[in-house]
């Protein structure tokens, strides 16, 4: 897939250069992919997103959207944006607000009514709210309206900054559904989210940001495959239990892997090849261990997030 967003050596500072928000950021986002931006608060994710939309002016570096500079007005005909803290025109009705954005996107007024109804259905807002003032909407409804506003411009590239913020579980499910629909339709999505389970279920690739730098970019399937592990639970047997440490050490050594003793008759082995679970179980059984449960598990994004944050912190201390 060709890249539709290209960022090269991007720098952004605030406070007259004292605060580095983006520090030599370079990345490419392919057309049709769902790209997740994750990282702790203050990592620079929102600034990176607003830079792609030319709402923030970088100090140095290049951003191109479909080959054009980020500030090119034409880009805004193909992009949609949901800010983290949406402040909509509170005096408008829901219907007026969507008509307004339909017209701002340069779409024909003839098809506005049908499009408004269509996006309201997609974000599961009842037609009865059409005449309601925006200021009367709850936080979750405002977020749905924000999504409707993104949809109404029929974007090719969507920038979503914390779309699940303030949403109930049904709302979170709706976002997942929309993201999967976008993926199916070939729409590019840049998703900034702290809901790592949502990122894990929908994104093709993720970038982990910290202190304005991209520390890690990887395809999600690679992360999940490379970081699988097998949790073993064994039957309590006094004779074997006396030697359990030696048994686990021997298996780890035989199969060139590592493990952590989780206590409560459980240990978790790292999996380094497809056949590893079978080999681990066979080796343990061969040493006389009575296995009650063997559960392969994928490394969750949350664990990766925690590990990366911890490693970076340790490196900083060194």
């Amino acid at each position: 897939m060709p890249p539709c967003v290209e960022i090269t050596n991007l720098y952004k500072t605030y406070n007259r250069g004292k605060t580095h928000v983006l520090d030599n950021v370079s990345l490419q986002i392919n057309a049709g992919e769902i790209f997740g931006l994750i990282g702790p608060n203050g990592a620079g994710k929102t600034t990176l997103m607003t830079s792609m939309l030319a709402l923030t002016i970088p100090n140095a570096g290049l951003i191109s959207i479909n080959g054009f500079p980020a500030a090119n007005l034409g880009n805004r005909r193909v992009t949609g944006f949901l800010p983290e803290r949406p402040h909509f025109d509170a005096w408008m009705t829901v219907e007026q607000f969507l008509h307004y954005h339909h017209e701002l996107a340069g779409l024909s007024t003839k098809e506005a009514e049908a499009n408004v109804n269509d996006v309201l259905t997609k974000v599961e807002l009842e037609f009865s709210v059409k005449k309601r003032l925006v200021r009367r909407l709850s936080r979750g409804m405002l977020q749905r309206l924000g999504l409707a506003q993104v949809l109404i411009g029929r974007p090719e590239i969507c920038f979503l900054d914390e779309p699940a913020s303030g949403m109930d579980p049904l709302g979170v499910q709706l976002i997942r559904q929309l993201l999967l629909e976008w993926k199916k339709a070939g729409t590019t999505v840049v998703l900034n989210s702290h809901h790592l389970d949502e990122v894990e279920k929908t994104c093709d690739r993720i970038a982990f940001m910290k202190d304005g730098k991209i520390r890690f970019i990887e395809e999600l399937t690679n992360i999940q495959q490379n970081k699988q592990h097998l949790t073993i639970k064994w039957h309590v047997d006094t004779d074997v239990n006396k030697n359990i440490q030696a048994i686990l050490d021997r298996t780890a050594s035989n199969l060139n892997t590592s493990y952590t003793n989780a206590g409560d008759n459980k240990a978790t082995f790292a999996i380094n090849e497809i056949a590893a679970p079978y080999k681990i179980i066979s080796d343990l059984v061969g040493q006389g261990l009575e296995i009650e449960e063997a559960m392969p598990q994928k490394h969750s994004l949350e664990e990766l997030f925690r590990d990366l944050s911890r490693n970076l912190k340790e490196n900083e201390h060194k």
Binding site: F81, P83, H87, F88, A90, L104, A105, R135, G153, F159
Partner: peptide
């Protein structure tokens, strides 16, 4: 017409349009 006095967040959405 906004609860917040930060007009930048309102204008961000507006200027994301052409």
């Amino acid at each position: 017409n906004q609860k917040s006095l930060n007009d930048g967040e309102y204008l961000a959405l507006l200027f994301s349009r052409p």
